[in-house]
Amino acid sequence: EETYEVDGEEQLKKVEKMLRDRNLDVEVEIHNGKFVIRAK
């Protein structure tokens, strides 16, 4: 499992696309105004 923490939606979209391109399962949560992306 990998976890990424990003600020802002633009970064979120980039990271999310990169992970989905690797066929990973992606979950996004918001913690303290930051996006936390978990990939399995």
Rank of each mutant, 00 (worst) to 15 (best):
E1A: 10
E1F: 14
E1M: 14
E1K: 09
E1V: 14
E1G: 11
E1L: 12
E1Y: 15
E1I: 14
E1P: 11
E1D: 12
E1C: 15
E1W: 15
E2R: 09
E2F: 14
E2T: 11
E2A: 08
E2S: 07
E2W: 15
T3V: 15
T3P: 03
T3W: 15
T3E: 10
T3I: 15
T3Y: 14
T3M: 14
T3R: 12
T3S: 10
T3D: 03
T3A: 09
Y4V: 04
Y4I: 07
Y4K: 01
Y4H: 03
Y4A: 03
Y4T: 01
Y4W: 14
Y4N: 01
Y4G: 01
Y4M: 03
E5D: 05
E5R: 08
E5H: 09
E5W: 14
E5V: 15
E5F: 13
E5S: 07
E5T: 13
E5K: 06
V6K: 02
V6T: 04
V6N: 03
V6I: 10
V6F: 07
V6L: 07
V6E: 02
V6D: 03
V6S: 02
V6W: 04
D7W: 15
D7E: 13
D7V: 14
D7N: 08
D7M: 12
D7A: 10
D7Q: 10
D7I: 13
D7S: 11
D7T: 12
G8C: 15
G8A: 06
G8V: 05
G8T: 15
G8Y: 08
G8R: 07
E9Q: 09
E9F: 13
E9V: 12
E9G: 05
E9D: 07
E9A: 08
E9N: 07
E9R: 08
E10W: 06
E10G: 03
E10P: 02
E10L: 06
E10K: 04
E10V: 08
E10C: 15
E10D: 11
Q11R: 04
Q11W: 11
Q11G: 08
Q11M: 13
Q11P: 03
Q11K: 07
Q11F: 07
Q11I: 08
Q11S: 10
L12N: 01
L12K: 09
L12P: 00
L12E: 02
L12H: 02
L12D: 00
L12G: 02
L12V: 06
K13F: 09
K13H: 11
K13P: 00
K13A: 12
K13D: 06
K13L: 10
K13N: 06
K13S: 08
K14F: 11
K14V: 11
K14Y: 12
K14M: 13
K14D: 09
K14E: 13
K14N: 08
K14R: 12
V15H: 02
V15E: 02
V15W: 07
V15T: 04
V15D: 01
V15S: 01
V15P: 00
V15Y: 11
E16H: 08
E16I: 15
E16P: 00
E16F: 14
E16K: 11
E16G: 02
E16A: 13
E16T: 15
K17Q: 13
K17Y: 02
K17T: 08
K17H: 05
K17L: 07
K17P: 01
K17R: 08
K17S: 09
M18H: 06
M18A: 11
M18L: 11
M18C: 15
M18K: 05
M18F: 12
M18W: 15
M18G: 03
L19I: 05
L19V: 02
L19W: 04
L19Y: 06
L19E: 03
L19G: 01
L19Q: 00
L19A: 00
L19D: 02
L19K: 00
L19R: 00
L19F: 12
L19H: 02
R20L: 12
R20N: 07
R20Q: 09
R20I: 06
R20F: 08
R20H: 10
R20K: 12
R20T: 08
R20C: 13
D21I: 03
D21L: 07
D21E: 12
D21M: 07
D21V: 02
D21F: 04
D21A: 08
D21N: 04
D21G: 04
D21R: 04
D21K: 06
R22G: 06
R22W: 09
R22E: 05
R22T: 04
R22K: 10
R22P: 03
R22V: 04
R22S: 07
R22M: 13
R22I: 04
N23A: 06
N23L: 08
N23R: 07
N23S: 08
N23Y: 10
N23E: 10
N23T: 02
N23I: 01
N23F: 12
L24N: 03
L24Y: 13
L24S: 01
L24A: 04
L24I: 09
L24R: 04
L24W: 11
L24K: 06
L24C: 15
D25P: 03
D25H: 14
D25L: 14
D25E: 14
D25I: 15
D25K: 13
D25Y: 13
D25R: 13
D25V: 14
D25N: 12
D25G: 08
V26S: 03
V26G: 02
V26P: 05
V26H: 04
V26D: 01
V26A: 05
V26R: 00
V26W: 15
V26F: 15
E27S: 14
E27F: 13
E27Y: 13
E27D: 09
E27K: 11
E27R: 13
E27L: 13
E27A: 09
E27N: 07
E27G: 03
V28A: 00
V28D: 00
V28H: 00
V28Y: 05
V28P: 00
V28F: 05
V28I: 13
E29N: 07
E29M: 11
E29F: 14
E29R: 09
E29C: 08
E29Y: 14
E29D: 06
E29Q: 09
I30H: 11
I30Y: 14
I30S: 08
I30F: 14
I30N: 08
I30D: 07
I30T: 07
I30A: 07
I30M: 10
I30C: 14
I30V: 12
I30Q: 09
I30L: 09
I30W: 13
H31S: 11
H31V: 15
H31Y: 12
H31K: 13
H31G: 05
H31A: 10
H31W: 10
H31I: 15
H31P: 00
N32Q: 07
N32A: 05
N32F: 06
N32K: 07
N32V: 04
N32H: 07
G33F: 00
G33N: 06
G33Q: 02
G33H: 06
G33S: 01
G33M: 02
G33K: 01
G33W: 00
G33P: 02
K34G: 06
K34Q: 05
K34R: 12
K34W: 07
K34F: 08
K34S: 05
K34V: 10
K34L: 06
F35I: 10
F35L: 07
F35Q: 03
F35V: 07
F35A: 03
F35D: 01
F35T: 05
F35N: 01
F35H: 03
F35Y: 13
F35S: 01
V36W: 05
V36C: 15
V36F: 11
V36S: 01
V36P: 01
V36G: 00
V36H: 06
V36E: 02
V36L: 12
V36Y: 11
V36K: 05
V36R: 05
I37A: 01
I37R: 00
I37W: 00
I37P: 01
I37D: 02
I37K: 01
I37G: 00
I37C: 03
I37Y: 01
I37T: 01
I37S: 00
R38I: 10
R38T: 11
R38N: 04
R38D: 02
R38S: 06
R38H: 10
R38Q: 03
R38K: 11
R38Y: 07
R38E: 03
R38G: 03
R38L: 04
A39T: 11
A39L: 10
A39F: 10
A39H: 05
A39S: 06
A39M: 07
A39W: 11
A39D: 04
A39R: 02
A39K: 02
A39E: 03
K40H: 12
K40G: 05
K40N: 08
K40S: 10
K40A: 06
K40F: 12
